[in-house]
Write a protein that binds this DNA or RNA. Structure first.
Lengths: 207, 207
DNA sequence: AAATGTACCGCATCATTATGTAGTTTGCCG
DNA sequence: CGGCAAACTACATAATGATGCGGTACATTT
């Protein structure tokens, strides 16, 4: 593994200092620096600092870690952004992943495991704390929930396939049922949702 | 961690035997047994065998590991199904996750890491090999196009109609041109945007 | 002048979507 | 038990989407 420049964005001074000291004593780390906020991070970038890995908290003063991901990736296209946070709610998880984070670690992750996560991420993989991985897995296999329009679990799975842009055939493959069953469900879904096309459904689902 | 009953479904006898011997020497494992196919796995279940964890290959004779997940979960609702496979294509990954797999490991995972994956999964988490996690993460953040693809004014107008959910005919009405011209422009748009369907385009346009 | 790009148009073909009709099986509820 | 809903399946049909090929006209660039 190449020696890395690691930036930490963390407002808690104890954690910030702890991480800095850990990284500064690690051979794989060429340079480690930290800022207490997104804003000060971008000032440091503007004044010439660099980073290959950005380890960022979410709950920060001013701009949140999640809201900063896209900006980080614009300024540092080759950098990996890894979340290090107490938040394990699905909204923040998926918003961060959608924005381009390549790792999502919980705050209780031991430092050596943070190091290991950085290693696999820089090697082209990704790493999530197990509880986060479970939430991600459950995104693909949703459990029954309260729902609007009385949609069944099956119907919601099929909507997900439609939103993903899959053809009926591919949705059928994914769910191991026939394409005619897909068509049957879609008829019911469109009736329940009062739409007449996939696009209408997608627009409605994204609200 | 409670002592577990682990079932392995693996047609390669070397791997099967290796895994069995490893688990049978591990304290966390109360019982380990294996079958070379899904069909023989279900026969064993029918004749009284049990499992808390099912570690299954995908490329099996007869029914594939992926196609067996749902049946396993019906017969063993409390069991975790973990894929152990060489396949790292997105189709199989997402199909397995949608079917309810709670782990997805590549075949080159060392045995102690398989054990660790089982541990975190039984503790309510999930575990994926890093390359798999990267595919999953990229599902949420597909690579954006590097520029605006030099769309003309006309092309942007037509994209808007597509995003609005209008049929080609209605877009043609809106722009006072023929439906064949719509088709012509859409061909060019899809090429420029590197998509193959309206839904892909919409997903890409909304970022 | 020739090449290139944009906008327009038509035809042909195949793939996919949407909808109607019919049926079976299973589980739940009154 | 019958009624109902959910899930599955099949068939048929029409409409729409996607793509390939061909063409014209005009403006700009080489």
């Amino acid at each position: 593994m190449d020696t890395l420049r690691i930036a930490v964005i963390e407002d808690d001074p104890v954690i910030r200092t702890g991480l800095l000291e850990y990284f500064q004593h690690e051979e794989f780390c060429h340079d480690a620096w930290a800022t207490p906020s997104m804003e000060s991070f971008f000032e440091a970038i503007k004044s010439g600092k660099h980073a290959d890995v950005v380890l960022t908290d979410i709950g920060l003063p001013g701009m949140s870690g999640t809201d900063g991901i896209r900006l980080i990736r614009e300024q540092l296209p080759q950098a990996d952004v890894i979340m290090l946070t107490v938040f394990k709610d699905e909204n923040r998880i998926f918003k961060s992943l959608c924005a381009g984070a390549t790792g999502y670690l919980l705050k209780d992750t031991p430092f050596p495991q943070i190091k290991e996560a950085i290693r696999v991420i820089r090697n082209g993989g990704s790493f999530m704390s197990p509880a986060i991985a479970r939430k991600v897995v459950q995104y693909f296999n949703p459990q029954p929930q309260e729902n609007e329009n009385n949609l069944t679990v099956r119907e919601r799975q099929i909507i997900q396939g439609l939103v993903d842009g899959l053809s009926y055939k591919l949705i059928a493959d994914r769910l191991s049922i026939s394409i005619d069953t897909i068509r049957y469900h879609i008829k019911k879904i469109y009736n329940k949702m009062h739409v007449n096309s996939r696009t209408e459904l997608i627009r409605k689902s994204m609200r």
